[in-house]
Amino acid sequence: MTSHPEYNEKTTATEVADAFSDRIRNKNVVITGVGPNSLGEALALAIAAHSPAKLILASRTKAKLEEVLKKISTGRPEMSSKIELVILDLASQKSVREAVAQILGCIDHIDILINNAGLMMLKQEFTGEGIELQFGTNHIGHFLFTNLLLEKLCREVGSSQGEAGSTKIVNVTSAGHRLSPFRFQDYNVDGKPVPDEEQPPAAMIAAYGKVDTYNGWIAYGQSKTANILFSVALNERFRSRGIVSYAVHPGSIWTGLGRNLDEQGTEILAKTGTYWKSIDEGAAPMLVAALDPALDGPPEPNRVYISDCQIAEAAPWAIDTDAAKRLFELSVELVGIDTA
């Protein structure tokens, strides 16, 4: 249970940051996907109000980062020297490595990492490495980014700074993970045959179409499943190093996430929400995951998913420990790194 069971879909990131101000002060925080009128901006504004030691904001576009920096600095000029802007294109492993090199050079440790960036699209596209773009950006880019930052994330448990939950990694997922399990046999969603356990539920196929060719909805769904499986794997692998990870559904929000959808896709997306949040409300559950001391203990897989600021139930395929291990191993192959 969280410290604030009264928090819900209308709770704001501003409220959460105010409640846990002491958990932000003098901490080093990294946020991806930061741009104007985005969840990343709402996160940055809420955190900047409570004197972090360093706030590292990452995005593909320098102009967008500078706009957010200006907004923060207008209200809190003392934060200007504490903010580092990092160009990060998660669809490019070269860009990820360059961004990590910049971050490693400016801080000695990371207390909170919020993997917030993401995209949604219906047309099949690929990263420079030939990986389906939604999977490649939403999961693989963040997987590489996180693993290359591990030396700044891990602590020795039992030391003064190494208690459980001394580092929080928040992976932003979606209720869209219910669209599909991860397709190990067809991760580029080319329409190849997959085992029954990797098939989308019949109701999802009825609503969003078969997967005999590329299906953007199913591709998005498996990438969001991957975000949750990544948190499960991080908790399994690095709990002895102080890392605790949660996967968070922000809720239904109109942001730039759906900018690549056509008119029909936008209409379908509009029907998926009953309460549409502000960006301040959408950012709140990420801050609950990052800051609430009641969530410092490594969660069991069935408690890794947060929605509307509370622990929620994820689809069974998204919290399967065997699938989490398989995905971690596949991801290692796709990015070509050695892991602890």
Rank of each mutant, 00 (worst) to 15 (best):
107 I>N: 02
110 I>R: 08
111 D>Y: 05
116 N>I: 07
125 E>I: 12
126 F>P: 06
131 I>Y: 11
137 T>V: 14
137 T>W: 00
140 I>S: 02
142 H>F: 01
143 F>C: 03
149 L>E: 10
149 L>I: 12
149 L>C: 11
151 E>C: 04
153 L>C: 14
153 L>M: 09
154 C>D: 11
154 C>N: 07
157 V>H: 12
162 G>T: 09
163 E>Y: 15
165 G>E: 10
171 N>S: 15
171 N>H: 04
172 V>Y: 00
174 S>D: 11
177 H>F: 08
177 H>Y: 09
177 H>S: 00
177 H>M: 07
179 L>A: 01
179 L>H: 10
180 S>R: 08
181 P>M: 02
183 R>Q: 14
183 R>A: 04
187 Y>C: 04
190 D>E: 13
190 D>H: 08
190 D>K: 13
193 P>V: 02
194 V>D: 02
195 P>D: 12
197 E>N: 15
198 E>R: 03
200 P>I: 07
200 P>C: 09
200 P>L: 06
200 P>K: 09
200 P>M: 08
203 A>I: 12
203 A>H: 05
206 A>L: 06
207 A>D: 13
208 Y>V: 04
209 G>P: 04
216 G>R: 00
217 W>H: 07
218 I>S: 03
221 G>Q: 08
221 G>R: 06
222 Q>P: 05
223 S>V: 13
223 S>K: 04
